[in-house]
């Protein structure tokens, strides 16, 4: 009987979490759909980025490696665009609440930090996924077919990698509350640093030795390496496949948790100091 009531409590908690997540995600969808101009532009943005980097790659690539070059750029880009979406959207969305004066009252409610953060990115995540699929067709149309070695495993690795990106973004959202106006500069900087150190647009072999050591410390590097090699074939560059998979899986579990904990501590600190609503 005790066990049953405990389960019901758990189920009730889950339902409550789902409801609050659903409501907040819906609100984000409504906001997103109201800015039609931004909505449409973001669709084209992905094509432009893909085009510029793929053509840049192809003019430096020997003709026999063209397919490999296109595939390499496309799969590298997928992880980059999700990371970028996570980094910018969560922080910006919280800053918006600060500007609008609703952040303090939001954090007075008993909603979970995890659903607050996840719901902020959910709408854009769905939209980015639609864009990525459209981009796949665009790339095939412009540059011809390219490799799709193991889609099923690739998708699993992509989902795990998304959680790694969320972890980084959750932690960064805490920084957004702390550093306020300087956040844009910090996000820009972090995005570029991760792009280079995690070799998001080129093989790890191109990195100088010292940067490669740094790359091996960052879990996101293993996501990039694993996802790319799963989709275009070949062995991962940093570690054997099994080891990289374990690292990615553990990172997908631990990083979001650490990110939320850091965010929570920042919010608590801001509440104590009374500067949560300041911007």
């Amino acid at each position: 009987m005790t066990s049953l009531s405990f389960n019901q409590e758990q189920l009730g908690g889950l339902r409550l979490w789902w409801n609050e997540f659903g409501c907040m995600a819906k609100k984000e969808f409504i906001v997103l759909s109201r800015y039609k101009f931004s909505f449409i532009l973001s669709f084209f943005q992905i094509f432009f980025i893909m085009f510029i980097f793929t053509v840049a790659a192809l003019i430096l690539t020997p003709p026999d490696k063209t397919d490999y070059g296109v595939g390499f750029m496309f799969y590298s880009f997928i992880l980059f665009i999700y990371l970028s979406t996570a980094l910018w959207d969560i922080g910006n969305s919280l800053r918006e609440e600060q500007y609008q004066g609703t952040l303090e009252s939001l954090f007075m409610t008993p909603i979970s930090y995890f659903s607050t953060l996840l719901s902020r990115i959910f709408a854009n995540l769905v939209w980015t996924s639609v864009n990525v699929m459209a981009c796949f067709f665009f790339m095939t149309l412009v540059f011809g077919e390219f490799s799709l070695i193991n889609v099923g495993l690739g998708l699993i690795i992509l989902i795990l990698s998304l959680f790694v990106c969320f972890g980084i973004a959750f932690g960064f959202a805490g920084l957004a509350l702390r550093y306020k106006e300087s956040m844009n500069i910090l996000t820009n900087f972090l995005q570029f640093i991760l792009m280079i150190v995690c070799a998001m647009f080129f093989p790890f072999s191109a990195l100088p030795e010292i940067v490669e050591i740094l790359a091996r410390i960052i879990p996101l590097s293993y996501c990039v390496d694993l996802f790319r090699t799963t989709m275009i074939g070949g062995a991962p560059e940093l570690l054997p496949f099994e080891l990289e998979f374990v690292i990615v899986m553990l990172s997908a579990l631990i990083l979001p948790l650490l990110g939320v904990l850091y965010f929570q501590s920042t919010v608590q600190k801001a509440k104590h100091e009374g500067n949560l609503a300041e911007y």
Binding site: L60, F189, F202
Partner: peptide, 24 residues
């Protein structure tokens, strides 16, 4: 920080195709 980024970012940006070309 913004000024420093304006100086650094073009090089980071350029390093993508440069390193890519070198690796390919």
């Amino acid at each position: 920080g913004s000024l420093i980024l304006d100086i650094i970012i073009p090089t980071l940006f350029a390093s993508i195709p440069i390193l890519l070309g070198q690796a390919f």
